[in-house]
């Protein structure tokens, strides 16, 4: 009994000396109160130590400490890994969109005699129908042919000729629309061709 008491008293004295040393080492700033908090807890632990040993010898403080810090780390890693997963998903979707765009453009340009000016694809981002095409907007222009030399009539209306040269007729647009809807299994109404 006296032996236990002796160890206890020595412990308390050493921790007090130790803490006074630490107080000198500590920068006198806002951080000091945080350290004081921890030091207070440690003094408490040292004072309580024999009591713990008497009442419950199974409590292992070191185990407890490691368990709690492990849990904290685990939570941090789960947070980080979730972030990484989300980022990966987004990258995958954008890659898919790019591929889809180039695919559509290549297909249309090789099959018909048109140039694709602009393409805009809206993809489904919810979990169930991930990657389904919601909307596809396409604006095409007729490929410029080699224009044969023509005598230019100055008095002819210029606007008329302009629209004839660049516009793509409705039939071709309809054809492109049907084609895309067949290949990618998209509803006809979701495709807009200009």
């Amino acid at each position: 009994m006296i032996e236990i008491l002796k160890i206890w008293i020595i412990n308390i004295i050493t921790i007090i000396v130790f803490i006074s040393f630490i107080e000198i080492l500590m920068p006198n700033s806002k951080m000091k109160k945080y350290l004081n908090l921890v030091l207070g807890f440690i003094v408490m632990l040292v004072i309580l130590n024999p009591l713990i040993n008497i009442i419950n010898s199974k409590v292992d403080l070191e185990d407890e400490f490691y368990k709690i810090s492990r849990d904290l780390k685990k939570e941090e890693y789960v947070f980080v890994s979730n972030n990484i997963e989300n980022k990966q998903k987004q990258q995958l979707i954008s890659l898919y969109e790019d591929r889809l765009k180039t695919d559509v453009v290549n297909r249309i340009e090789s099959k018909y005699d048109v140039n694709v000016l602009e393409i805009d694809i809206n993809l489904e981002k919810s979990e169930e129908n991930l990657g389904e095409i919601k909307k596809l907007k396409l604006s095409v222009i007729e490929k410029e042919k080699v224009i044969p030399i023509v005598k230019i009539d100055i008095f002819k209306d210029e606007n008329d000729e302009e629209s004839e040269k660049h516009g793509v007729d409705m039939e071709l647009k309809e054809k492109i629309r049907k084609d895309i809807s067949n290949i990618y299994n998209v509803k006809n109404t979701r495709i807009i061709v200009n």
Binding site: V38, F41, L72
Partner: peptide, 11 residues
């Protein structure tokens, strides 16, 4: 500090 705090509390 949190592990120390929590272990003292549990104790």
């Amino acid at each position: 500090a949190l592990p120390i705090l929590l272990s003292v509390l549990n104790l």
